[in-house]
């Protein structure tokens, strides 16, 4: 992943920065330039809460090359306390024991490695609380 592309997403991946529409209050993660609900182009920056619940999940058993060493791993859609949903791995747990409704918290982790000699790529993962 070229570093400009990685750097651009850092505010979201490192600090969970989202955009709150000044027109209708809808919160977008990742931030957008126009609200798909009210059409406003005015946003204020907000930070997502770290706690939420699993809405749905799966256990990945066949992964793309850069995640092959990690199978089986859990992926979930998590609904955070403010209603925003994000897709994330759920780690430090037995994936077989996960369930819809489980409470989780987002933590800062290494996500993947860029090829054999590239940089380490970071972001959020969820752990059970």
């Amino acid at each position: 992943m070229p570093s400009p592309r990685y750097r651009r997403e850092m505010p979201q991946r490192y600090r969970l920065e989202a955009g709150k529409c000044k027109g209708c209050g809808k919160i977008f993660f990742p931030p957008r330039l126009i609200c798909n609900k009210c059409g406003s182009q005015e946003f204020e920056q907000v930070v997502l809460p770290e706690n939420g619940k699993i809405v749905t999940f799966t256990i990945i058993r066949v992964a793309p090359a850069q995640f092959e060493a990690e199978v089986p791993y859990a992926i979930a859609i998590v609904e955070l306390e403010n209603g925003v949903r994000i897709t994330t791995q759920v780690v430090d747990c037995d994936p077989e024991k996960l369930d819809i409704g489980n409470e989780v918290k987002l933590v800062f982790r290494k996500i993947q490695k860029e090829g054999k000699t590239g940089i380490l790529l970071y972001g959020y993962k969820a752990v059970l609380v």
């Binding site: 990742p30 809405v55 749905t56 990945i60 850069q66 994000i86 897709t87 994330t88 996500i111």
Partner: peptide, 19 residues
């Protein structure tokens, strides 16, 4: 925001299925 975290296509449909 999906693939970066290791999501696959079967994984997305699996999440639809479970829901």
């Amino acid at each position: 925001y999906e693939c970066y975290h290791g999501v696959t296509f079967p994984g997305l449909y699996a999440m639809i299925a479970r829901a």
